[in-house]
């Protein structure tokens, strides 16, 4: 448990570092939210200057950072110029959707990748393994963007799935089961896109980890004792191959997250992605920083979860 305490402190420092860096980068980018107002002849320069000083943008950077920290401690995470509200409620609403999408995608892609990888590794160099490997290689070569567009095209042509949004307009009038059904229909496309994007990488890692373990002496002795092949694969080989895969899990949450930001924009899923793009375009700096911080938090959360799983899965780590 001390270990997790330590990890928590590490996480704090990490978040602090990310906040400083994102502050610096945003500040280095030319222009700010009020820049465009300046071009508008109907707004006087004096008004713009007054607005800027009202939001503290005329202050030196360290001072702005300090003020932002205070607002973080108040739980506001800064102030959005374009929405004219504190950042936090904006983000929390969107983050829920991103979390729903990323978590579903992560769960589904692992649930598909594990049996596929195990199956493929147990039939190494047979035709099934070849087909799966070729298939995933092809999938790997397709960029996420292309995948999303193709899926959208299919959805559009067939009309089987809604092509955007979180809910149907009639959502509030649906019963509980209808609500679930509607959400599944809406989430299907973006999740498909993320799963297909991450599946090849997961599959290949799982396959190669298992191929290596299946070559080891304890697997041979398990077979020598007549342990049925299914048990050898899932009870002996998979747990022994789990460590690198669990670390990969933490990593996959990160890549899924960044992929999902893109997919959200493409498929108009109301997550952090579209909000972030909008905020960047408008130079709504505190919103940008807030969104970056939230993404970092997800990433760190994924890795922390992976560590916890690692601890639970491997007696050698647990005993230390």
């Amino acid at each position: 448990m001390r270990y997790f305490f330590r990890r928590l402190i590490h996480t704090m420092f990490l978040l602090l570092g990310v906040s400083v860096l994102s502050f610096l980068f945003v500040a280095l980018a030319p222009g700010d939210y009020f820049e465009e107002m300046r071009l508008n002849p109907q707004i006087s320069q004096a008004t713009v200057a007054a607005m800027r000083s009202k939001y503290g943008l005329d202050q030196p950077l360290p001072k702005r950072y300090f003020r932002w920290m205070q607002s973080v401690l108040r739980g506001e995470l800064g102030f959005s110029f374009s929405y004219d509200t504190p950042v936090r409620p904006l983000l929390v609403a969107r983050a829920k959707n991103t979390l729903l999408l990323t978590a579903t995608a992560a769960l589904l892609s692992w649930l598909v990748a594990i049996p596929l990888g195990v199956w493929s590794s147990s039939r190494k160099a047979k035709w099934l393994d070849r087909v799966l490997t070729l298939g995933t290689t092809t999938l790997l070569a397709i960029p996420d963007l292309m995948l999303a567009l193709v899926l959208l095209l299919i959805a559009l042509r067939t009309g089987w799935f809604p092509t955007g949004g979180l809910h149907d307009i009639r959502f509030s009038r649906l019963n509980a089961w209808g609500k679930v059904e509607d959400t599944v229909a809406h989430i299907f496309l973006p999740v498909m896109c993320l799963v297909l994007g991450s599946l090849p990488i997961l599959f290949r890692h799982i396959r190669s980890a298992l191929v290596e373990v299946l070559d080891s002496p304890f697997i041979r002795s398990a077979r020598g004792h007549g342990i049925p092949e299914g048990r050898v694969l899932f009870l002996y080989a998979l747990p022994a191959a789990a460590n690198p895969l669990i670390s990969l899990f933490g990593f996959s949450v990160g890549t899924l997250l960044s992929a999902s930001l893109l997919v959200e924009v493409l498929m108009s899923w109301p997550g952090i992605g579209p909000l972030l793009v909008e905020a960047i375009l408008a130079r709504d700096i505190y919103l940008v920083i807030g969104a970056v911080m939230f993404s970092t938090l997800f990433l760190v959360g994924g890795n922390l979860l992976a560590d916890l799983l690692l601890y639970l899965a491997d007696p050698r780590i647990r005993m230390e």
Partner: peptide, 23 residues
């Protein structure tokens, strides 16, 4: 499979690595 371990069984070289490390 039904024969191995039940009728004829084998003790392999190197006990260090003949056992499943996570069971």
């Amino acid at each position: 499979r039904r024969l191995r371990g039940a009728k004829i069984s084998m003790i392999f070289q190197e006990p260090e690595i003949s056992l499943n490390p996570v069971m």
